[in-house]
Nucleic acid binder design. Sequence first.
DNA 1: CGAGATTACGAGTGATTGCTCGCATTCGTC
DNA 2: GACGAATGCGAGCAATCACTCGTAATCTCG
Lengths: 225, 225
Amino acid sequence: MRPTIGKVTAETAPETAPQSRPVDAERPKRRQARGERRIAQLLTAAGQVFAESGYAATTTNAIAARAGVSPGSLYQYFPNKDAIAAALAEYYADSLDVLLAPFAVVDPAAVTLEQALGASLGPIVEFHRENPACLALFIGGNAPGHVMDLQAPLMARTHQRIQALLTLYAGNLPAERLDLAAAVALGAYKGVLPLLVEAPQEQVGALTLEVRDLLLGYFDRLLAP
Amino acid sequence: MRPTIGKVTAETAPETAPQSRPVDAERPKRRQARGERRIAQLLTAAGQVFAESGYAATTTNAIAARAGVSPGSLYQYFPNKDAIAAALAEYYADSLDVLLAPFAVVDPAAVTLEQALGASLGPIVEFHRENPACLALFIGGNAPGHVMDLQAPLMARTHQRIQALLTLYAGNLPAERLDLAAAVALGAYKGVLPLLVEAPQEQVGALTLEVRDLLLGYFDRLLAP
DNA sequence: CGAGATTACGAGTGATTGCTCGCATTCGTC
DNA sequence: GACGAATGCGAGCAATCACTCGTAATCTCG
C-alpha cells in the first residue's frame, strides 16, 4: 500500500478566477493529467535516489533517468533540485504530522502509556520503511534550506506533543524537566529509526517492541525515581 | 584542553632501514617539523569546516583557506579530499575506542550499572563537544568510503561492548535479545548525541544525566519486565 | 656558503553537474 | 482537421570544485 505521491503545490480550482492582480505573480499554470503523472513519477524516482545516495550525491540527471524522463522534462515541473526535495519533504512532513497526531489526544485515565506508545509506533515505523528517503532528507542533516524549513517545525511540533503526553502522565514534574525529557525521547527515537528502516522484515516487530520499551523505561524512571 | 591532532599515518623511526624491497612501495618520505605542524593545522581546520557544512558541502579550498594555506600546500600532505576525512576519522575512531573501553571491564558485583554508565558518559560527551566533526562524519551518513571503513568496525566494537555489559548484568536473557537491546541502546545513544553537542554548556550536565536515565530505564525494563 | 630536499604558492585544468533553450510531439477543445 | 497550450527531448552552457604544475622560498646538513 505504497502511497501515491502527487499534488505537489496544490493548485486545483483553476476556474475560480482570482484575477485581482494584473500580471503580477505566477499564474496557476493549467496542468494536464499526464503532467500530474510525470510529477508523481519524478517524486518517487527522487525518493529512491535520495534514499540510496543522500541529497548532495544525487544528481538531477540521475532522478530524471530513474523516472525515465529527460532532464529538460524534469525542469518543466520543478524549478531546481531543492524544489524536488522540498516537494518530497512536504509530503513526508504532512504524513508524519498525521501519524504523530494521536500523541496529543490521550486520556490518561483510560489508556496506559504502554498502550498509547504501542499503538502509535507501528504505523510510524511502517511509514518510514516505505519512505526511506524521509530519513535521508530529515535525519541525515545537510538538507537544502527549504527542506529544513519544513523539518524544523515538524520536529518542534513533535517535541511539543511528546511533552504534552508526558505532562498528562507526570504533571507533577517541573515543566523544564519535561522539556528536557521530551528532547531526549525525541532524539532517541530518531536515533533508533534507521535501525527499524534497515532491519529485515521479520525483525521489525520485535525491534518496535524494544523501542517502545526504551521509551517506556525512560518514562518510568521519570515518574518513579 | 582541545587535543592536538597530528601523527596522521604514524611514520616515525625513519632511521631503522627496512630496505628489503628495492624501489617497490612508497618510501616513508622524510618530513620536517614544519610539515607536521601544517598537517595539524589542516586537520583542525578540516574538522571545523566539516562540522559546519558536512562532508559533501565542504570544499578543499575552504579547508585550505581556513588553515591559512594555499590549496597546493594542502595537496602536498593529503592525496585527496577523502584522505583528509579519513585521517580525521582515524583519530576520532581511536579516541572513541579508548573512551568506550571501560564498558568491557566492569565488575557487576562491585559497580552498579548506574555507576558504570555515569562514569563513562561524561568523557564521551565532552569528546564529542570538543570534536563536533566526529558526529558530522560518523553519524551524518554519506561519508566517503574510507571513513565508513573506520566507522563500521568502531560501531561493531561498541555494539559488542554494550552487549557484553548487558550480559554481565542480565546473563539470564537469551543472547538474541541482548543483541537487539545493544543495537537499540546504541541507536538511542547516537540519536541523543547531537543534542548533547549542540546544547549550551550549562545544560550539558543535566542532559547527560537524562541520557544515563534513558539507558538505565531501558536496561531496568530488560531485567525486570 | 651551496646543494638537495622539503615546503609553499596560486593560477589553471579537466571533469562534473545543475540547469537552459530551441524545437518536436501530443493533448484538449472547437 | 486546426490551433494553442502543455509536454517532451537532449545537446550544450556556465559555474563549481577537486586537483595539478611550474616556480619560488625555506630548511637541513656538509
